[in-house]
Design a protein around this nucleic acid. Sequence first.
DNA 1: TTGTAAGCGTTATCAC
DNA 2: GTGATAACGCTTACAA
Lengths: 341, 341
Amino acid sequence: MKNNHIDIRELARLLDLSITTVSRVLNGKSKSYRISEKTAERVIKTAKEYNYVPSQIARSLKTDKTGTIGLIIPDISNPFFADIAASIEREARAKEFSLILCDSEGHISIEKELVVLLQRHKVEGIIIAPIGINFDHVVQVYKSGLPVVIIDRGSPDEEFHSVTSDNYQGGYDATNYLISMGHKRIACIQGIPGSQVNEERVQGYKDALADNGIQPDKNLIMGHDFTIENGYRQIKILYSSKNLATAIFSLGNLITLGTFKAFNEMKMKVPDDVSLISFDEQPHSALLGTPMTTINQQKSEMGMLSVDILIRSINNKEFRNRPVNIKLKTNLIIRSSVRKV
Amino acid sequence: MKNNHIDIRELARLLDLSITTVSRVLNGKSKSYRISEKTAERVIKTAKEYNYVPSQIARSLKTDKTGTIGLIIPDISNPFFADIAASIEREARAKEFSLILCDSEGHISIEKELVVLLQRHKVEGIIIAPIGINFDHVVQVYKSGLPVVIIDRGSPDEEFHSVTSDNYQGGYDATNYLISMGHKRIACIQGIPGSQVNEERVQGYKDALADNGIQPDKNLIMGHDFTIENGYRQIKILYSSKNLATAIFSLGNLITLGTFKAFNEMKMKVPDDVSLISFDEQPHSALLGTPMTTINQQKSEMGMLSVDILIRSINNKEFRNRPVNIKLKTNLIIRSSVRKV
DNA sequence: TTGTAAGCGTTATCAC
DNA sequence: GTGATAACGCTTACAA
């Protein structure tokens, strides 16, 4: 059963005009082809009347432009990525591109499939927040000529465009702030070890300690992924050992939620019993019983910039081949989850 | 500049085979066309070698199936919709459909444009969480033959498929619970008046009061949209009047965040100074200093069901024309933000 | 077991 | 001012 949509041929027949003329009018080229006012009006009126909607598919086949871009992120239900996705969708729409949204669920295998999927759909470019260390599939896409922008982490060897936060500085600032508040034993609950984002944050943490003459304790760098469960478990482990800390630096928003859970269960109060600082600002950070001190990332800027760069790459091969690597500043938002000791 | 992708014609030439044969092999029809093992293998090997990716665009034009569905929601950065979107993306992907994500930003005019946009892209169906009261554009799409599923609210006159929560029951349960805890003056901070979701929740609130012999006080039904700001402002207004309440029923997750903000500023403690119950469960509901009592909606079920219904509609015209209207149960999650008085 | 050719709904190149 | 027609990259009768 076909949709009862009229096509351009039918429309031309109804108007007793050629397809060409109709197409021209509908594409706003009446002037340049000097089509009479009267004809143009007739076309537009009839098109509206019959609810004509041109097929982007057919147009794409001919013009080699689909007007779509692909977005691959690890988890759309994570507010961090949801916020980024929102700004990407908005910016893309403003620039007349539609967005195919793909969730890699944190699996590199899915991510790889999604990249191919987007190629099949002939997206004009891809924005990707990659899962892991391995980039072969992205490299391959890029080499095939498709514009690619990496977000949330930098590009290896600055090979592609990328927009990321200055994770190192964020890690440094957070740790430094804790130290300035008198903390010396600071546990760092990390995300995926080896991932660029994580390593940079951890390095910032270590360097801040070192710069303040504090010997980093390896046992205080804990955890293995960016999940709630990880945050929960590490706190439990930490405070069941004698390896105590007066402050926690959580490297991700979900990790932070997990630490809440553990603290609640253990009846530990923030900041009375333990101080907490978290990477990533969240909608509720400011609104908690104890408003949370955080390292904020410029999420909507990240989204907007990635789209702008992508679209410039689409329109300009030169630009595409000269990768731009942007590091957005993070900023420390001081609230009340860190206590002076 | 063209992407350096090989096409099926090129591939056939390289293999010294016809396009037909190559197409058949690549579509897994080797068997039914009794293509020799050897040929099939050659084709597959060469395709891989040259990194052949078939054009979904060309295929769509021919087959009239794009393998895409459209999703229109009012705000992807709202965790409620982000969660739904996540489950929709997942389910769609499992069923071999890609998702075009559209954010209507809460504006009916954008929503209307998006509907047309999706039609241009020849999506095979649309899932939409509509903004407002006016449905003409949706009706029109549906009449054009495109399958449509409404989520988050019911279908007017049960004209289309819909998957929604039992908002009335949720409103009733929340209010009833507050009453059972001894509350009599219960303020209801509502979302958009006139919207179906809102009206049902409010009606549940009113009926629960009435059933318990409490005269609803119109002044206690406050507010006008589902935003943080609204939640914030209504609490400020409420507690600067003498029109006090011992409990608040917030009709939306963002509203609830706004009430937090106001309570913090006013140094009011939940539940000591005021009890709070909120529509919508959030990632942090359980993890707050005072874990929050909520009315939970089955978000991932909503997403999955909407996709299943949509795809059945795509595959079966009969089914499409016999609208299914699903009301998902809400459930009351009792934590500690409501105090017995 | 494989191939030829028409056609999907547009746009673009000529032609008049 | 307007129109015929080829072409985009596939799938799919119909042939052989």
